[in-house]
Structures are given as C-alpha cells and as structure tokens.
C-alpha cells in the first residue's frame, strides 16, 4: 500500500511541476516533454534521480524524467561494462523496449483508429 501512496505522491508532484511550467510560461507540451527528459537525464547523471526512484517507484519511472533517467543510467552502466563505446550504445539499449513499443503501438493505433476531432 505504501508503494502505491508514494507512487501517487511523487508522480503527482512531478506533474505539478509540469503544470506550473505550462501555466506560468509559454512553453508548449512538446517543449515540456523535451525539457523533462533532459532534466531527468541530468538529475540521473548527478545521482539525484535514483533516490527518487527508490522512494517513488513508478511515480518516478512513469513520468517522462524517468525516460531520461533510463537513457542516462543505462549509458553509465554500459560505459562501466564496455568502456568508451558505451557512451553511444548505452542509451538505446536501455530505452529499446520503450521506443520500439511506442513505435509499434503508435503505428498500430494510428492504423486502427481515426481522429474524432
């Protein structure tokens, strides 16, 4: 139960930050998604995002900064395993499932459904 409450709180708070950016700046949703992935990546690199994942679980991995965290943490892991080449191979290895699934289901849904407007 605790895990669910923490996921709710952490995930909700990350979204609140996004909402503040939307309402108080003129950033579009596209800008905010990009910003959050980059921020998540940077926080991950300086070692601040993993603690958030430990606390919030899905509350930290489901929001987009979690995607940035996946990219950076798997890059670091790959650098530890295979050195220099890991800089370029790590990110996509870690995000392979996410990106492939997004493309496959994105395409499938686009074919199956029509926009309602």
């Amino acid at each position: 139960m605790q895990a669910y409450i923490m996921a709710f709180l952490v995930g909700g708070l990350i979204c609140v930050v996004g909402q503040l950016l939307m309402d108080l700046t003129s950033l579009t949703p596209a800008h905010i998604l990009v910003l959050f992935v980059v921020l998540g990546g940077i926080l991950s690199a300086v070692g601040l995002y993993q603690p958030l994942v430990d606390i919030g679980g899905a509350g930290a991995t489901v929001p987009l900064p979690g995607f940035g965290h996946t990219l950076v943490s798997s890059t670091f892991e790959e650098i530890n395993n295979s050195g220099f080449l890991g800089i370029f191979s790590g990110a996509l290895k870690g995000a392979a499932v996410g990106i492939t699934v997004a493309v496959v289901f994105g395409f499938t849904m686009a074919v199956l459904f029509n926009p309602k407007g």
Binding site: C15, V16, Q19, P29, I32, V62, F105, G106
Partner: peptide, 17 residues
C-alpha cells in the same frame, strides 16, 4: 493538463495523435 502530458502515456499520446 500536465497530469496526462508528463507521464509516459502522454508520450504515447504525442505519437499516436
């Protein structure tokens, strides 16, 4: 608003839409 944009489901939405 951001509640549905920021989670990865919003990323999927930005692909399918």
């Amino acid at each position: 608003g951001a509640g549905s944009t920021v989670p990865i489901t919003g990323f999927a939405n930005s692909i399918v839409a």
